[in-house]
């Protein structure tokens, strides 16, 4: 239980279309991440799945049943909001139990469900507190707990980590991944952070301007991007795009990831403009007359001086060819 299908889904606000015909199938138990720059429509799409926004045209189906006209509460889904959206006047226990209480679940059953979720999230000692008395990380866990208690078919996460500091973000990310394994539930997760997408997802959906650019497993997107947008969006630091014509190739642009550019080769010449030493790796920025600023990622600590002249090489089978419109040439 918990498969999601979107068929030619569109959304317009007034005359502007923000979702332009999205088709997508998320299988039961899958962790699916919507990723894209801000304004790409990923949150809108999530809110349409939740029922918080109406669908302009197309169908949203959960487990094969069309849910376009169902109220959010009747879609058997749960959502974790960016701002957590806890009820400030209710205790942690009541926050988690409200949905069940509203549905008329017997009290003992509510108790059991909240107790179990609290245990899972290490919230048991906080059950009588109110949101104002919790830290950011604890609030986040309560928000997740509120979702778990309802045993939904589908979990929706709307940028749930963006209000946490860096350390807590990594920790919560691992926690969410663990929950997904333990619950085996279908999860849809929206983020603009490609690292979150890469680390959490079974399936990544890259969106831009209301259109799906590519759908695939993280490593498929990394190793086999369909276009320059996906190639540039997935992977950090960003992929280098070279002027293929200057290299005597017939494609328009050549994409090479920073780790696949190696110093010492003779194909590309340039000067070092800046060096970032991160300990485990060194990023060397090379200004090339033909291709602009290129990033080279080297393992370990490496010494380069600014203005040093370097030659860069690459293995042809590690390079991606794109046409003038940015489409991948395979």
């Amino acid at each position: 239980m918990g498969a999601l299908t979107l068929t030619q889904v569109t959304k317009s606000f007034g005359t502007t279309q923000v979702i332009k015909g999205v088709d997508l199938a998320v299988e039961d138990g899958e962790f699916c991440v919507f990723v894209g720059p801000s304004g790409c429509g990923k949150s809108t799409l999530l809110r349409m799945i939740a029922g918080l926004e109406d669908v302009t045209s197309g169908d949203v189906a959960i487990d094969g049943a069309r849910v376009n006209d169902l109220a959010p509460a009747r879609r058997e889904i749960a959502m974790v909001f960016q701002s957590y959206a806890l009820y400030p006047h209710l205790t942690v226990r009541d926050n988690m139990g409200l949905a069940l209480k509203q549905a008329g679940t017997p009290r003992a059953q509510i108790e059991a469900a909240t107790g179990k979720a609290a245990e899972m999230l290490a919230l048991a000692h906080l059950l009588e507190r109110r949101p104002a008395e919790l830290s950011g990380g604890q609030r986040q866990r309560v928000a997740i707990g509120r979702a778990i208690v309802r045993r939904p078919k589908l979990f929706l996460f709307d940028e749930p980590l963006s209000n946490l500091d860096a350390a807590l973000r990594v920790q919560t990310r691992i926690e969410i991944a663990r929950l997904h394994r333990e619950l085996g539930a279908t999860m849809i997760y929206v983020t603009h952070d490609q690292v979150e997408a890469m680390t959490l997802a079974d399936k990544i959906v890259v969106l831009r301007g209301g259109v799906v650019e590519q759908v695939g497993r993280p490593m498929d997107l990394y190793n086999d991007p369909d276009n320059t947008f996906v190639a540039g969006f997935i992977g950090s630091p960003q992929m280098n795009f070279l002027d293929a014509g200057k290299l005597g190739l017939r494609s328009a642009r050549l994409g090479i990831r920073p780790e696949h550019l190696v110093p010492g080769g003779g194909q590309i010449g340039g000067r070092v403009s800046h060096v970032e030493k991160l300990g485990g790796e060194t990023l060397v920025y090379v200004a090339s007359e033909d291709h602009g600023l290129l990033t080279v990622r080297l393992f370990g600590e490496q010494d380069y001086a600014v203005d040093e002249v370097v030659g860069l090489g690459f293995e042809p089978n590690r390079a991606f060819h794109f046409d003038a419109e940015g489409r991948r040439l395979r």
Partner: peptide, 8 residues
């Protein structure tokens, strides 16, 4: 148009 949340 469908109205999942708002009843007329």
């Amino acid at each position: 148009m469908s109205q999942a949340r708002h009843s007329t």
